[in-house]
Design a protein around this nucleic acid. Structure first.
Lengths: 350, 350
DNA sequence: GCCTTTTCTTAAAACGTTTTAATTCATTCC
DNA sequence: GGAATGAATTAAAACGTTTTAAGAAAAGGC
């Protein structure tokens, strides 16, 4: 029984196997041909001494750490209250799958100061080469983060936000398109007075995109955009309730509502119940996210698969880290599906 | 304008400042006296060239990475359904506070294969010296993890589980004591037929501890332990419902129930409502965790502050990493508080 | 058998820091 | 005015790998 205590180095292996350290390295990593016989001997020693290469030493020369970093608001923040609390888990699960498979380590750096990304830590991590790449998932693009990161040509992927404009790698559902089609769905059902609840403040790109999609659909149908048909909500059920209240108090109330997120739709339903309104009879309802809520409350909604977003984001980052070739920004769009339920008052037609 | 592109090293700084690299290192880290004047010059260059030491190189010699790892079941797993989904966030928030303050990086390694900890990745990380220490938060101790880690003398702290027996550093509430006092609370209120719902399978130490506390309180009061008064529940509301059903169908039903977790207590309440039973009139109820649920349903419950557990766990780990002195295992107990509400039928007396 | 290839092996140079021990240079002490 | 002290600086070793370029041995080709 040898002492396997004090960390055994490649030198120990080399000595014990009667061979040079380069040969050990080659054999271990399979990076150059080594005779069958010596290879066997080396691996025997490696096993016996329980050798594990030191990551710092390795990283020093390879310039790789195998660490990637997820930069998000704190999981307890408003942001992740999107569609209940499972959002963070879903995202993590998707990322985790790739992480495990590609043998990366996941580092979490969150921004716990509200929505504005204070990046010093992230930037430091990146500049000291403590990680290979970063997945960014923020409600709004703080341009300083993005700029600082891309200035250093640091591999990064933005997830949960499409960034075609800024030519940065991103993975997301097409929020614009979903909103566009949700509104269109209502138009096709004959509605002309269609309201919209923003899932959050318009500084969040997601919200802006959704609002734009809604607006464009209306515009193309030749329907005038009305300010009073747009309500800026938040992540609470109550905001849906208040939206409904504000809409239905109008002289000319909308006959359909495009809700920005499921929890808001629930608020609308709550309001309808309290006020003896029928859905979809008096007002039709369509929403985003397709969480458990939409199933529970029979809400027509569109899937936004965060698991998939996380997974594809990690995949894209990995691609960036391995293949140096393709330089152009890639924007992956995760497909969404309209799940028709009772609240919109119609069968689906794509 | 210099090229601040290609990573600037300590050598560059030394050359530019007309000084040796040791001096730069000393000045930068404040680890040896450097003349005021040269120090100023060095820092000017550092700033101008935007220098950031390479973490791998640094880690190679200092044998520190500043990474610590949190090892848990996947956040989407049953385990974290304890008291709603916020558990993971709370834990993370507590840990995060210390992490940020002490300038550590947090690495997440989860075990996504059920409750049995498959550790290869964790062990590998540790053996390749990719992190300085590990926080372990698992429902049950898989002895192989603990053994393998302590075999290597690896700094670790177990959180959310007390480990006095195995002499391992740990931070947790005292589950045994809480259960003991919950049962005692019921005894003091004059109950003698007291039932217990386990929050999960008894392999989970938390559950075992709670059951034991309950049992001992009864025993000390000279009350015989009855098998039919113990129900092994799980993380679902339904299990509380079923427990109530099983208890109240007995010839001699209990008059008080010690629930293993809030969500189960809700199940009990649901059952009572359906069957026209009054709480605490027909059956008194006391629970664990003090989540939002206990407030919403007016359940007497005991706080288990996961934020605090995470925070103290990280603190303890940090202590381990900096002070090499104290070798004995430390077991930190986070205090809990009994929050008396309507469900137990009494005012508090400690 | 000599030259060329191929296969295997190695010595040595990186990688970018920290740290140790030695050196320089100016002060202070008696 | 020489010795002793002390402060500031440096050269060089170490940390544990990978990688490059070169060397040695074996294997073909003619």
């Amino acid at each position: 029984m040898k002492k396997t205590d004090r960390s055994v180095t490649i030198k120990d292996i080399a000595r014990e196997a009667g061979v040079s350290i380069s040969t050990v390295s080659f054999a271990f990593n399979g990076t150059a041909p080594v005779a069958q016989e010596t290879k066997a001997r080396i691996f025997e020693v490696i096993k016996r001494l329980n050798y594990q290469p030191n990551s710092a030493a390795r990283g020093l020369v390879t310039r790789k750490t195998n660490n990637i970093c997820l930069f998000t608001p704190h999981p307890a923040s408003d942001f992740f209250s999107f569609s209940g609390n499972s959002v963070f888990s879903d995202l993590l699960q998707g990322i985790g799958e790739v992480i495990d498979q590609k043998d990366y380590n996941l580092l979490i750096a969150w921004d716990n100061i509200g929505h504005k990304a204070k990046t010093p830590k992230l930037v430091k991590l990146m500049r000291e080469r403590a990680m290979d790449g970063v997945l960014i998932c923020l409600p709004s693009h703080d341009s300083s983060v993005i700029e600082e990161l891309s200035e250093h040509q640091f591999p990064m992927v933005i997830i949960g936000t499409n960034d075609r404009k800024n030519r940065i790698n991103s993975v997301d559902v097409d929020n614009y398109d979903i909103a566009y089609r949700n509104a269109q769905h209502m138009l096709r059902l004959g509605h002309t007075r269609i309201a919209f609840i923003s899932p959050g403040p318009l500084e969040f790109l997601v919200c802006e995109d959704r609002l734009e999609g809604y607006r464009d659909a209306l515009q193309e149908a030749g329907i005038k955009y009305r300010d009073e048909y747009v309500f800026i909500g938040d992540e609470k059920e109550r905001s849906g309730y208040r939206a409904a209240d504000s809409f239905l108090a109008l002289k000319e109330p909308p006959t359909a509502i495009v809700s920005g997120r499921d929890i808001q739709a629930v608020g609308v339903i709550e309001y309808a119940r309290e006020n003896g309104l029928s859905i979809p009879g008096d007002v039709a309802l369509i929403s985003f996210e397709n969480t458990e809520l939409s199933q529970k409350y029979d809400i027509t909604s569109v899937t936004t698969d965060l698991y998939e977003i996380g997974k594809e984001g990690a995949k894209l980052l990995h691609k960036l880290l391995t293949r140096k070739k393709d330089r152009g920004a890639q924007n992956v769009v995760i497909s969404s599906e309209l799940i028709v339920r009772g609240s919109c008052g119609a069968k689906a037609r794509t």
